[in-house]
Design a binder for these strands. Structure first.
Lengths: 259, 259
DNA sequence: TTTCTATTTGGTAAAATTTACCAAATGAAG
DNA sequence: CTTCATTTGGTAAATTTTACCAAATAGAAA
């Protein structure tokens, strides 16, 4: 995956390729079957958990960098990514949380990290993303030791200011959910009203009337009823629906709300 | 205000005090008497116009930095400032728009700028602010040559990506207006319904029913009716109102909308 | 003093939207 | 052909939004 030589070169010369002092951290939310999770990883050699993050190449846009970072750290591609806030408190990184001597003792490849560009003050741009966690097997990538889904209410305490990042990201996601086609990323092309209802309930963390909510989606033209049904065992077969992206982008402009 | 020595020192050694590669740019909106304006400045030696901006000290939070930058560049203090988006396209600064040779020829104090930290790639954090432009006389400060209010629909084309910044800032301001006590910054402690109505119309750039809009503000408890009237010449004297901050912060949490 | 004018404000009816929830329809299993 | 769990059409009530009328009012003009 990544050789010692690559890591050493990143520590010593990374600032030539990447912009120093700025990073991107991604809160990647995963939904499946009524559950909301978030992807938490460990940096190689570090003790605690944190959000997957990385640096911006000098040739990239921020959105491109966020996409690449997610791909490098988790092997997930093509996520819906959204910038939501930039974090820059001078004490956002508690340097005493990082026992560099112990890390170097454990992993000698980090021997030059103390005087490297990585130890400089860093401002971090927060992105959130959303995906179906059952379709995706996160893989620890460059410099990350692990990479796992946690239930949103069972996230372990995170390093730095990443707890706050998760909180703010979730708030931003929930606001956007009302007028951006986020649910589209979490459902198959054809889905039932019950399914889309469950997505919104899980992401918003609150109950929505099972009858009125889908009715409004149809009324607003955000989804289209198809002439097909799905077989779901010994019950009435539900109709299938598909998204109407044209209406969604209009809703975005006008600022429709989905209660 | 600032000596040549200070400018030279900033160019040569500023990176020790400030974090390089990151700046803050502020879209400062000004309201008064139905009019919406924005503060546009000129950097000393540069040709075009741009938003007032600056760098972040290594000891500051982002909000503190934004406040200091506004103060340094415009002599305005105590603004309501809000971070809204971070801009980082690698080509957001068109270096060929900057004729450094000509600037140096005009102002020799800039002679070392070409090889300085200021010419490096920079990501910018966007803030917006709002104030009453009649109460405030902007003063060009450190390294800015001018500093003036422009009608929001008569802003000259701006350098870099600052046109986009103005657009995004205004959009963010308008969204926030529905649940943050922004109008409070633009009105005296005691104000009439007509006055607050005018503020919202100007900031949103659209008409709001003169009767229903204030009625809703009262109904939601966002403003309180006082037992005083104001004398306004040969017409019926309007009642005075004041803000109810407690209700406002509750509205913020619940996400009330003001149509 | 009375009339006039411009503005503020109480009010209300109609329209639209949201909320709550009933009961019929449905598809397969027993 | 009955049963069961689920989907879905429907509707009535509650609430909110929209549109707009007309009375109240304060000083200026007559």
């Amino acid at each position: 995956m990544h050789t010692n030589k690559e890591v050493e070169d990143f520590i010593e010369n990374g600032y030539k390729t990447y912009i120093p002092h700025i990073s991107i951290d991604c809160a990647i939310f995963g939904y499946h079957d009524h559950q909301l999770k978030i992807l938490v990883s460990q940096i190689e050699g570090f003790d605690g958990y944190c959000l997957p993050g990385g640096y911006i190449k000098r040739t990239e846009t921020l959105d491109e960098a966020a996409g690449r970072i997610v791909e490098e750290k988790t092997a997930i591609t093509g996520l819906y990514l959204q910038q939501y806030k930039t974090f820059g408190d001078p004490d956002r990184i508690k340097w005493n949380e990082l026992d560099t001597d112990r890390i170097i003792a454990k992993l000698p490849v980090f021997k030059k990290i103390k005087s490297s560009w990585l130890m400089d003050q860093t401002i971090s741009i927060g992105y959130y993303a959303i995906t179906d966690f059952s379709l995706v097997k996160p893989q620890p990538g460059f410099m990350s030791a692990s990479c796992e889904w946690y239930d949103i209410d069972k996230v372990p305490p995170l390093l730095f200011d990443h707890d706050q990042m998760v909180k703010d990201a979730l708030q931003a996601l929930r606001q956007q959910l009302y007028y951006a086609p986020i649910a589209e990323k979490l459902l198959p092309k054809k889905f039932t009203l019950t399914e889309i209802h469950a997505v919104y309930e899980a992401l918003l963390g609150k109950r929505l009337d099972i009858r009125n909510f889908p009715k409004k989606l149809v009324f607003l033209g955000l989804i289209n009823k198809l002439n097909e049904k799905r077989n779901i065992g010994p019950h009435r077969a539900p109709y299938l629906y598909s998204f109407n992206n044209r209406q969604y982008s209009r809703a975005l402009k006008r600022g429709i709300s989905l209660t």
